[in-house]
Design a binder for these strands. Sequence first.
DNA 1: GAGGGATTGTTATACCATAACAGTCAGCCA
DNA 2: TGGCTGACTGTTATGGTATAACAATCCCTC
Lengths: 167, 167
Amino acid sequence: MPQRVETVFPDPQHDHAPCVAETLERAEKIFKNNGLSLTPLRRQVLQEVAGSHTAVGAYDILERLAQKGGRRLAPISVYRALDSLVAAGMVHRLESRNAFFACHVSHAGDRRQIVLACETCSAVAEVPGGSVFDGIGAAAAASTFKPTRTLVEVIGVCGRCQAGVPV
Amino acid sequence: MPQRVETVFPDPQHDHAPCVAETLERAEKIFKNNGLSLTPLRRQVLQEVAGSHTAVGAYDILERLAQKGGRRLAPISVYRALDSLVAAGMVHRLESRNAFFACHVSHAGDRRQIVLACETCSAVAEVPGGSVFDGIGAAAAASTFKPTRTLVEVIGVCGRCQAGVPV
DNA sequence: GAGGGATTGTTATACCATAACAGTCAGCCA
DNA sequence: TGGCTGACTGTTATGGTATAACAATCCCTC
Ligand SMILES: [Zn+2]
Ligand SMILES: [Zn+2]
Ligand SMILES: [Zn+2]
Ligand SMILES: [Zn+2]
């Protein structure tokens, strides 16, 4: 009998279609609210990023779109789409890996999220980090340093991979 | 009359030679203790990195060494030297910028340091972050996530730059 | 119907990092 | 001695990440 694992990392077996659909809807609204639009290109890129709970590289996206769409985009087109998605908060950048992952949790502009990235299965999750970020803010203030962006990334092994789930 | 600024960012006017000398000495010992050696190449690379309190790119180092030394190194030589210096804890990597900065503070293997990086003057400083890292560890544990490496980088504006020090 | 912002295309280039293999040197020990 | 090993660097080639600069289109508004 499979053991229940308490984790923010979703079961790989879960039905992911609703995750994607919800994310696309949310993106649609956010872009509209900002006087922008979730264009076909941006939608396609977001679909690729949101297609899994892992971080993907810009050139991976490029490659996958080329497989599906026929024509081959220029790298900068993908980067521009990613920029807009990052600005909209729909996609985050995993700095330690130069990669991107979709935000599935709707933390609504609050960027005080701790990022957990599994080095075994590449899954990425976010957990709220209010008090942690408060501590960081205090440490920065004590050094008269004014933060504009704070980055907390934890590289490690997720519960499922620790449990030795076969690849 | 200049105002005193409480900060871990040293005054750009300070005599930096002792900083470098101390760092080189420390490196010498660490390498020796590990059965390795601070070779001329590694020493040169460390000197370039430690030559300022800012983060520098690997190719910047390459370029500066080429200016000084005559011969031009292959990129991988610089990367190998940097790898050894990072492993020794003498140099840290600024993940958010794909750059490297020297460790001037001797935190002796304790990697629970908060990195503050000024986006105006490029200066980098480290401050101890024990409680912050404890909080991050707790959050990870609550998600059955086992950290192997934790990254806390704050991008912002240092006290001096806030005070409008002319460039 | 002129202006301006958003969006994408096109081309070229810059920047960051590693693979694979060879050669040198010093220390160790049968 | 002579062979082994590990540390270190060189050489060549390649792979991966990101942006500059300029043009064209579309839509909305004044
Ligand atoms: Zn998010
Ligand atoms: Zn995993
Ligand atoms: Zn340090
Ligand atoms: Zn500054």
